[in-house]
Write a protein that binds this DNA or RNA. Structure first.
Lengths: 205, 205, 205, 205
DNA sequence: TATGAATGAGTCTTCATTCAT
DNA sequence: CATGAATGAAGACTCATTCAT
């Protein structure tokens, strides 16, 4: 019984997603994937080179989205004190994250909690680092534009903040947060965060 | 005899710590441990039931310390607005964490990054949850004592904060942060955090 | 159509030659051949029954050449003492081998070093044996013609000599011997060999 | 049923030798070795690190013998024209080879015909090269001692000669040569070879 | 206590080849 | 003629753990 190629790829990917979700990359077994997808073990290798490639394929959408979002986040549109002061900057960041999380909930789970042993196991650290660099540069440029504000925020603090973002995503993904709870959280975070940043960077209202 | 016995236990534990540190729990091999400790593979099983038990034994000190710290954190001594306002509360928390981290740096590495596959792999989530509960209760009691402050902080926000603490520990442990950088970070965090909490809880100076 | 067909055969054969050369018959993979030739894996089986047949096809030219040369070598033209004495016999043999080697260098490499696992892996032994038989018969006939010479050369010695020839080819093929070095070698071999054979067969100058 | 360690090692080695002999290193299967030796597949790995180690263990005796013989062959005792002229030098070499071959017949088979795919597959070339170097040096020193003889023998010719020695061993090992045939061969070779070398190096009787 | 031996299921991956379309 | 799909056996090697001594 011949089937469409995409059909099979899809079947394999679905079974793999289940398997990875249940056991994590390292413990996931090609045997199980084969058994659960009803596809011959060796036949899987006609579609994917190895376990890792399946995993990466599964997460390619999310990773592309993350990459895009990060570049866009670098945009100079945000380089203004009003932005900072008017909560717009944070709201932007937040919406970005929330949007990503809602669309890629499952994939985030895989990426953040199930990727150990795969090529992507370092991705969490990588985005943390990239986000940190971006933020440091952002602050530097703000300082250049508004010389009165305090740009002396230590890299490690910023790193910590970036790491926090990831862990917020992790929490959002892990627990099933209702829409209301999420909105509530966002409001709270913005109060908290803006107050914090203003204090730290010496920004007057 | 008794001494010898403890000697061997120690030897096993040392070799195991190395192995777990290098390869993580899941990839750690009892054979390697045996080889590196110079103790017969099967003899290890006279001292420990299995790989997991070794891992738990290794981290028992840290886990006990965490437990103690958490209970102590609940103490009614901290239940005062002055505490909150005078930065002392945060300083206390911070010192606690920093103290723990400095004392148990290696163990934290094991617990946070190398425990996948072991019984303790959920420990990170567990302490996050426990810390969250503790914090919620703390806020509730503060609210009871000082009715004027805003105690409506959503559980998820608090959860998020707790999770952040863990990720700060993770960052501290992962990167070798110098003493100066650490002090700098603490100062920054306190400015940031106190401003944030005060805003959120409606606490006037 | 017919042209196309041959085109594909050729493409397959070229890719196969590369593959066999790189990995040897046993390790060569039909998948690689398909990939490198740009021809569908299963389509290859429309042109060749199996891997072995491709290999044999590849070497058919060389094998035919070897067969021809061997028969020709048996020719009665060489059956004269002058031939032996005037170095012509050896020169003839040598030229034959050198000619073959120069024309079929690549194919010899395949046959001698890359054929393990294929039907042709015994070919080296087979030609050794055939060459041995031919030589024995040659000597016998010489003895018949010139009764004064010593024809009592043991079969194993002759076998050894034949085997040596093959290993000379192997050496020639393996190391890239310059033309000069080759000529030098031939001269040396002829001095050495004629002196040896004359001694052994009691031939006076 | 506990058995002596050496017993098991031996059992494994025996079964492995059979397997290697039958199928060659590359095609030999650990599964077969396990089955034929009656020892659990995984248990084999308690005695040997991998297939290659078994193979090397099997041939360690032979390789040691070859190494020793080659060093001893380098001895300055042979540096005299009488030696060359009186056939003693060749007789020495021959006896050395014959002795080795008789003692290590089976092992030579493994090394020369069954080692493809193993660490030792290059050993044939290596000893050829080593023997070549030794011979070149030998000739150079003879030339230094007896300036009248011709030392201009091309390296490739010598290489060829070395290679021939190996192929003689190969032939001896492959076919079951009777003692008489062997003696006969040796006599013939010595007539042939001494005549050849004398001619080539311009040595008068 | 300590050890060497043993186990048996498990890992991912590769292979040449065939079949239905 | 061409192709994508499928197969099933095979490959070496690792694992935590148990058992008998």
């Amino acid at each position: 019984m011949q089937v469409q190629k995409d059909d099979i790829r899809g079947t394999i990917l679905n079974a793999s997603r289940q398997e990875f979700m249940n056991k994590g990359f390292k413990n996931a077994s090609m045997r199980s994937i084969a058994a659960n997808s009803g596809i011959g073990l060796s036949n899987i290798y006609n579609y994917f080179r190895n376990k890792d490639e399946i995993f990466r394929e599964l997460l390619s959408g999310l990773i592309y989205a993350i990459d895009s979002t990060m570049e866009q986040h670098n945009s100079p549109d945000y380089l203004s004190i009003e932005v900072l002061n008017s909560d717009e900057y944070m709201r932007g960041q937040i919406d970005m994250f929330v949007g990503l999380v809602e669309k890629y909930k499952e994939d985030f789970k895989l990426l953040l909690f199930k990727s150990a042993g795969s090529t992507l196991e370092c991705f969490r650290n990588e985005i943390t680092d990239r986000h940190t660099k971006t933020s440091i540069e952002y602050i530097a440029q703000m300082k250049k534009k508004y010389s009165e504000l305090n740009g002396n925020v230590s890299p490690f603090f910023i790193h910590t903040m970036s790491s926090w973002w990831i862990s917020v995503i992790a929490e959002l993904v892990m627990h099933d947060i209702s829409h209301d709870a999420l909105q509530c959280f966002i409001r709270e975070y913005m109060e908290f965060g803006t107050a914090g940043w203003k204090k730290l960077m010496d920004i007057k209202d």
